[in-house]
Design a binder for these strands. Sequence first.
DNA 1: ATTCATTTTGCAACCGGTTGCAAAAAGAAT
DNA 2: ATTCTTTTTGCAACCGGTTGCAAAATGAAT
Lengths: 333, 333
Amino acid sequence: MAVTLRDVADRAGVSRSAVSRTFTEGASVSAKTRAKVEKAATELGYSPNAIASSLTTGRTKLIGLVSNNFHNPLFLEVFDLFTRGLQDRGLRPLLVNLSHETDPANSVRMLRQYSVDGVIVASSTLPPSFAEAFRDAGVPVVHSFGRYTTSPHVHVVGIDNIACGRMAAEALIARGHRSVAFLGGPETATSTQDRERGFLDALSSHPEIQVSVSYASAYSFDAGRAEMMRLLQGTPAEAYFCGDDVLSIGVLSAISDARLRVPDDIGIIGLNDMEMARWENINLTTIRQPVAQIIGASIDLVVETIQHPDRHPETRLFPCRVIERGTLRPVPR
Amino acid sequence: MAVTLRDVADRAGVSRSAVSRTFTEGASVSAKTRAKVEKAATELGYSPNAIASSLTTGRTKLIGLVSNNFHNPLFLEVFDLFTRGLQDRGLRPLLVNLSHETDPANSVRMLRQYSVDGVIVASSTLPPSFAEAFRDAGVPVVHSFGRYTTSPHVHVVGIDNIACGRMAAEALIARGHRSVAFLGGPETATSTQDRERGFLDALSSHPEIQVSVSYASAYSFDAGRAEMMRLLQGTPAEAYFCGDDVLSIGVLSAISDARLRVPDDIGIIGLNDMEMARWENINLTTIRQPVAQIIGASIDLVVETIQHPDRHPETRLFPCRVIERGTLRPVPR
DNA sequence: ATTCATTTTGCAACCGGTTGCAAAAAGAAT
DNA sequence: ATTCTTTTTGCAACCGGTTGCAAAATGAAT
């Protein structure tokens, strides 16, 4: 059925090695045989079988892309950039959807069966142990959008969530708010913990500002909306730093239902800057994650790790910045 | 490094065939040797190499998932369902991002190099010829969200876009609108053409209703917004059927900027029912595509095609229905 | 205990490539 | 023309599995 190396060799009148070598970068073939082989190959429509060659070279050029964020619109951009970035480097993404899975063992097995060259765990909610399971299995791995740790056991690329929390706090302080709040995602998510920490940390030097904290049950519209509706039964803070953009939009929806105005009655700052945050009817002030840089660095790092498996685990964090839109009042004066 | 079949065989004191057979469904192994092998396998942490076995079986259990829709939030749901659905059947999705590519040859080559068992082309904008290129290369293929044709050359699963256009028209007629319009996506997209056709067809029996047609330059927020802003310079129709939900949201944004109210001044009906359409601050009346059914059927069909490669090309279309929310006034009486 | 049918097992070839090695060919130097 | 060096080539083994086939083992029947 499919045309193989042997067919090409026969047609070109050379050995199978010769054919293999013409398709192998830097192998020794004379111009003459290369020409013969290439002619035969195009005539037959041959293209080498990556699977078969991986068997001897030990390289499949497959990269496992593991994620559990299939409900955050930011991740559509993430998948877009990852798949394009990998393709551009001649790598192919093998997607693993972790939606309900929490045990890494299964994913590890699945990806080892396909001898992936490396794995990228793209998630801001998975614990570090998840990526570590791959490293323990001897698979080069990078945790994208992962959590910063001082002595990482595994490569991490992402943002400094603590610094982001601080940045959000400073944005609210600069606007002269007297009472502010953190409305996080699930308390167990590593990103929530760090963002809260940074937020509270920055506010600790401003005892005159009243601070409160609460958590939505998920990084989702509904959870954000539900939590804000609950908060609106009491006395809400003047401004909220929300766990992420989707949550923020749920919060905005609850506020608008309560006939309160943003930013006059309540200010909101999100985190991510997903594509729809800039849509005019959302117009969310938020902290932008440099997604493209994170993804570029993640791919670079996994490629480097494939080449040098024993490199020290490294953490690469990229700076975020506040994107001013319409859900936070302007800084006075 | 990795533990192979041979290691297990040595440890269990049996032949390599015996090991292979214990891991092969329906092969002949006695309970005794199976036990020995399984013991050795778990002790060594062995799991069979799918890549290697594919070489002889001719089955990789890889499915190419080809798409160019990385900016439509609906497709995050689509990827979620596809990856989960494939995983549940023991198949692995190999993602190909077509963002700028228009020539199928490249994708075909990429996926043939990995000997994928089948391909799912998930796109409402790609022409039928794209999927056909895979069929011509002898790869089982299903075009998901593809266009209906009376004599398809390739399996198609999706919705009847013409019927949807008609359904939208009927929804507007039932509400007593005197002037209605179709605001499509790019004129070249197959889905746009069909939806327009159905829409105009249903209205042809209502000569008293004024009808107009225009196109946004893409299925995107910005394009929808821009086109509606243009339309608002003249006299807009009473109600619009928009190419899809993202477009609709752009349109809503333009309308709200013009200080017009929805649905009182202008009614909007979208198509897709993506997750955020139900968000309370969007609350879009739209036509729901049964995404889960389409995806389930697509996977079924590609699996069947792998088993029976010569099956006649088939078109499976699923019915849509109007989801009433807040952007279209209620049916009178 | 013998015969026959059935199941289990290992051998060896194969899947589609790659690669170390030694032989053959080409090129350079005398 | 001869010798030496360098490049090119094919052989054969191997990557990690599968599978047809015949031999060996098991079980049933007499």
